[in-house]
Design a protein around this nucleic acid. Structure first.
Lengths: 166, 166
DNA sequence: TGTTAATTGTTCGTACCCGAACAATCTTGG
DNA sequence: CCAAGATTGTTCGGGTACGAACAATTAACA
């Protein structure tokens, strides 16, 4: 777990302070950088693109998933977006209150809820997503195309080994 | 932004649905996988190691940073851990209530607050950190050592290009 | 020396975030 | 056909998470 201190500084301090405790620093560096990277990326996208439109990160992810796959069941949105059903219920409540999505019970199975974008939700995404994607491009602009692909591939490997699915 | 659907599936659906909108899918894949990876890693570590000890992810990060660098100013903890000062105040309040840390005003500058672990806080970390690091190792066990280092390096490049510092 | 500017940590309001428990609904098995 | 088991989405409680505003303190400048 290291932020601004380099791995070497942290290793040295941990050696001094924690007295020879066996630590896999490479694993620690990878894990902490995944998390630091995610926080930095999310904050950057929220600050420059999303907040001016009144959306949080997760609200945007939900809108994007619905935009691409609608009509879609809530359990599929949660799975696709990587958050819990409880979180999704709260975010959908927020989006519905802003008239960006609708929810309706599935005619096929009374347990299921189907979600669609409204006209204003679709319009919001048409305006917003190009800006979002431009900022995504800027975020990875310090990497080569091959490095960007490698990064996505290694992260997907990590996520799949945790979640144990496709 | 894609979860369980592969990049190819998502590309195809986006092409069908959004009609030739120019999208940099490699950037999207990298950004969404950073975020998905972070959520998966955090949930895995919280579920298996942290929650049994009553700590959240961020509470653990704070404890770790204080453990390594104590006594440490709150502004340095926030910077090192990558979250806001407002968030840190709340987490420190929780940790202080559980008698894991102490806060005291700096004798050198009345604006600053210094944080240390308590004895029970130190004992908690001595017990917890080896388990945490073992789970970190397991999380990256699907990668080679070179891939793990590459992952950390690419993520650090991304984070530094956003935050624009060392 | 006094005023202005900057910095720090806290508070407030709002929005996530999730596990557990629950009610409603569907599936499975006898 | 009915009971038991499983699944779904919602609610609840507790914990982040952050920007803006604020009070207290220090730094800078004339």
């Amino acid at each position: 777990m290291a932020g601004h201190h380099t791995i070497t500084e942290t290793e040295r301090q941990v050696e001094n302070k924690l007295g020879g405790l066996p630590i896999n620093f490479t694993a620690t560096a990878a894990v902490s950088n995944i998390f630091r990277g995610a926080t930095a990326v999310r904050n950057q996208l929220e600050r420059t693109v999303l907040r001016p439109s009144g959306l949080s990160w997760t609200a945007f992810v939900v809108m994007w998933v619905v935009w691409v796959w609608e009509p879609i069941e809530t359990r599929a949105i949660a799975s696709e977006g990587g958050f819990s059903k409880a979180t999704l219920t709260g975010v959908l409540t927020t989006l519905e209150a802003r008239d960006f999505v609708t929810r309706e019970k599935s005619p096929l199975d009374g347990r299921l809820v189907l979600v669609r974008l409204t006209d204003s939700g679709r319009e919001l995404m048409e305006n917003l997503f190009p800006k979002f994607n431009a900022m995504e491009e800027q975020i990875v602009s310090g990497l080569t195309a091959a490095e960007t692909l490698t990064l996505a591939t290694l992260l997907r490997k990590v996520t799949q080994s945790i979640e144990g699915d496709d």
